[in-house]
Simulated scan of single mutants.
Amino acid sequence: MKNEFKNLMQRIYAKTKLVRGKESFFNDVNNSKIYLMLVPKHGNMGDQAIIYATIAFLKDYFSDYKVVIVNFSQTYKDFKRLKEKIKEDDIIFLPGGGNMGNLYPWEEFARRFIIENFLSNKIVSMPQTIDFRNTKSGRRELKKTMKVYNSHPNLTLIAREEKSYNLMKACFPQAKVLICPDIVFYLSSIFGKQRKKRSMIMSCIRSDKESISNDKVLLNLQKHFPDLLIDDTVVARNISNELREIEVNSKLNQFMRSKVVITDRMHGMVFCAITNTPCVVTKSLDHKILGTYQWIKNLDYICFVDKLDSDSTIKLIDGLSRRDISDKKLDVLQDHFKTLRKRIGL
């Protein structure tokens, strides 16, 4: 255990050289750079896992570039200095996720701001779900986004599921549009090999505006499984660049210690897939869970249901908790990442 912790800290120290925020882009003098911008500090561990996986991917496949981290909070307040530091041959990467749309408008505003103000740079948006609501405000914001994105001469958008791919192709004809699984799947080569003693049933159910689950189901599950751990992929604290790896590892270890997870979180499902953890997953507000499930529907320990029902969910949990899970490799998904740099055109 001591050696394992020591090795982890050594890896974290090495990575913090890449992720020091302000110091990186104010003081760095290397030539070829990738600026990973809009990096969040909030406690959504799905989003933090996206950044963790993106940095790992860039380190593996773009080793000829220096990766510079720019926090979301620096987007506006340090804009003038960013404009001075970012050269025309530098590449800007924007994080993947599920915030391209009007559900989280501040995220979309910031993405438009960068795309609109860095017209001389190649910009790559990592695997995203697009979801503009069919409302007056949703249609209005989509028009604004279409105008900005289609005005950029060198923009690559990567969708993480088929519906988003088709929408991006239709809305952004001037951009290069690709499809690739959620970048967190890239971590399967690391966490799929690890083993922990599984000792609990865990629920990971949303309580925010994306939730469509029934609270009564969770109460019934608690009655049937008294030791049910009620958890979430969101923690009530900010996550610094230096501690991101520790925090993501801690959350994934929790999944690896679970016999079964019940979730309506997309990254709850992805965390289960990459850690070989049996899972009952249901949909949330938009199409991202069902779309992402299509990449892993061959995994017999990931069970998608249209709606959580107490009796059927209990039966599924009982069955999955007794299942002997052998190694389920996600090699076919890794193939998408291996070819991604070439498909981007770099």
Rank of each mutant, 00 (worst) to 15 (best):
S32D: 08
Q10T: 07
M126W: 09
F72S: 06
K6C: 02
R133A: 06
G98K: 01
I55H: 04
E162Y: 14
V124I: 15
D215Y: 15
S125Q: 10
F185D: 00
S310N: 09
L94C: 05
W106S: 12
K338G: 02
R140P: 02
Y35P: 02
R139A: 09
S213N: 14
E84Q: 07
G138Y: 08
T135R: 09
L330T: 01
E108Y: 04
N99A: 15
V19R: 04
T16R: 07
L187W: 08
V261F: 07
R160K: 11
L8T: 04
V148Y: 10
N102Y: 05
V248T: 04
K329R: 13
F185A: 00
I91R: 06
P95N: 08
N44A: 03
M9T: 03
G291V: 06
D306E: 13
D78W: 04
L308C: 13
N276L: 13
I50G: 01
I317N: 06
G21E: 02
Q254M: 13
C303K: 03
C180K: 01
H267R: 09
C171Q: 13
P226I: 06
L308G: 00
D28A: 08
I92C: 01
K297W: 12
R323C: 01
I344W: 03
I246S: 10
C171F: 13
H152I: 12
I12S: 02
K297C: 09
K147G: 03
Q174E: 13
S207N: 01
L340W: 02
N253I: 10
I86K: 00
I50M: 09
D318Y: 09
Y13Q: 10
Y52R: 03
K83Q: 14
K147P: 00
M202S: 07
D311C: 09
D324F: 13
S310T: 11
K216L: 09
P153G: 13
D318T: 15
L229H: 06
N214S: 14
N134M: 15
W295D: 00
K193E: 13
I314Y: 06
M45N: 05
I12Q: 14
L320Q: 15
Y301E: 10
K85H: 07
L252C: 03
V270L: 11
L330R: 03
I34C: 10
C180F: 03
L330W: 02
K259Q: 10
D309N: 14
F225A: 00
S310Y: 10
C279T: 06
V124D: 08
G192Q: 01
L82W: 01
D47C: 00
I51C: 09
T263R: 03
N31I: 11
G96K: 03
P173Y: 08
S312D: 15
R140M: 14
S137T: 07
I314Q: 11
E116C: 14
I317L: 02
M37W: 06
M100Q: 11
S151G: 05
I262F: 10
L346A: 01
D231C: 08
E141I: 12
N102S: 15
F62L: 02
P105Q: 12
S213L: 08
R111K: 15
I123F: 09
D264M: 04
L58C: 05
A53G: 06
R198F: 04
N253Y: 11
K307R: 11
L157T: 00
R322D: 13
L82M: 13
I296S: 04
L103E: 12
L178M: 05
C279R: 00
L221R: 07
F304N: 14
I50H: 08
V67N: 05
D60F: 09
L157N: 00
N99V: 11
S211T: 14
S199H: 05
K251M: 08
R257H: 05
